[in-house]
Design a protein around this nucleic acid. Structure first.
Length: 279
DNA sequence: CGGACAACCTGGCGGC
DNA sequence: TGCCGCCAGGTTGTCC
């Protein structure tokens, strides 16, 4: 499911049920979902720790506990939800990890494809590795984007997917940001003009902001914490719209394979070479 | 360093 | 209906 807007929506949904709660247990249903430490140590260590904040870094959900950080990465199909003690819950076919809470409720991690991971650590970089700037933070300015583009010359689409370049952008919002900026996915980063960079900066922020505003994209597996769907997919310009008319010029949106990822774009609004804008 | 590709997994969908 | 191949929001490791 998860790119920045989806993860951010989950984080916001977890705050109310989890803030101030303490964990009493951790039970793996599918052991490989528990990345680090090993399940026995994880369970012993999380018991008694209280949730002091629920936040996000890149695509990681970060629960700030009394002594450690509980990190959850949803990868493709992970989902988090909270059940109350007295609530009747249907059997979850894809349940991977159950966290017991001090009010008798449970935080549950469910994941169809088993790619998602949970970790307990006191040093976030040990799990996340190096990450680029948060694109919706004040520190991410056009100048910062410009600076990070120095001495690089990759096609823009795979560059935007590189989490060490910018944190949190995934396949959907990379396509959406490039469309909004009028930049072809294969454009080399070194060919971008100053205006291109300023426009791209605004487009990345706008695409992600709209995604958060619409509470994420429920194309397939993604659900909010309460189980309902996000609505971001209804507002896409290009993602999943191949064959349909471009919302700006009417030309059919095309789909290509780029760096092994499905890539959607408008060949008219995103010309392959730098344009000479008569405008 | 960059690019291609396989792995990790399961499910949905289109084609025959 | 059934079977088959392909595709999927992510990331990591290997090989050239």
């Amino acid at each position: 499911m998860p790119e920045l807007p989806e993860v951010e929506t989950v984080v916001r949904g977890l705050r109310t049920p989890l803030m101030g709660r303490s964990f009493v247990s951790m039970r793996p249903v599918w052991e490989r979902t528990v990345q680090t430490p090993n399940p026995a140590e994880f369970a012993a260590r999380i018991a008694g720790q209280t949730v002091q904040d629920v936040t996000r870094r890149a695509k990681f959900i970060v629960l700030v506990l009394s002594e450690d950080l509980l990190l959850v990465h949803l990868r493709m199909t992970g989902r988090l939800y909270v059940t109350q003690a007295e609530a009747q819950h249907d059997a979850d076919r894809w349940l991977r990890v159950v966290f017991g809470l001090d009010d008798g409720g449970e935080l549950r991690f469910s994941d169809v494809r088993k790619f998602g991971r949970v970790s307990l650590t006191d040093r976030i970089e040990a799990i996340t590795g190096p990450l680029g700037p948060e694109p919706l933070s004040a520190e991410f300015t056009p100048a910062v984007l410009h600076e990070r583009l120095q001495n690089r010359n990759k096609p823009m689409k795979p560059l935007l997917l590189d989490q060490t370049f910018i944190a949190g952008v995934g396949n959907i919002y990379a396509d959406e940001a490039l469309f909004r900026a009028g930049i072809h996915p294969q454009r080399r980063s070194a060919s971008l003009s100053h205006d291109d960079i300023v426009r791209l900066h605004g487009s990345i922020q706008a695409a992600l902001h709209d995604g958060v505003q619409h509470e994420g994209a429920s194309i397939n597996w993604y659900r909010k914490v309460d189980g309902s769907k996000g609505n971001s997919q209804a507002h896409f310009y290009v993602y999943g719209r191949d064959g349909q008319p471009c919302r700006h010029c009417g030309h059919p949106i095309e789909k290509m394979r780029l760096a092994q990822r499905g890539t959607h774009y408008c060949p008219v609004c995103q010309p392959a070479a730098a344009t000479i804008d008569a405008g």
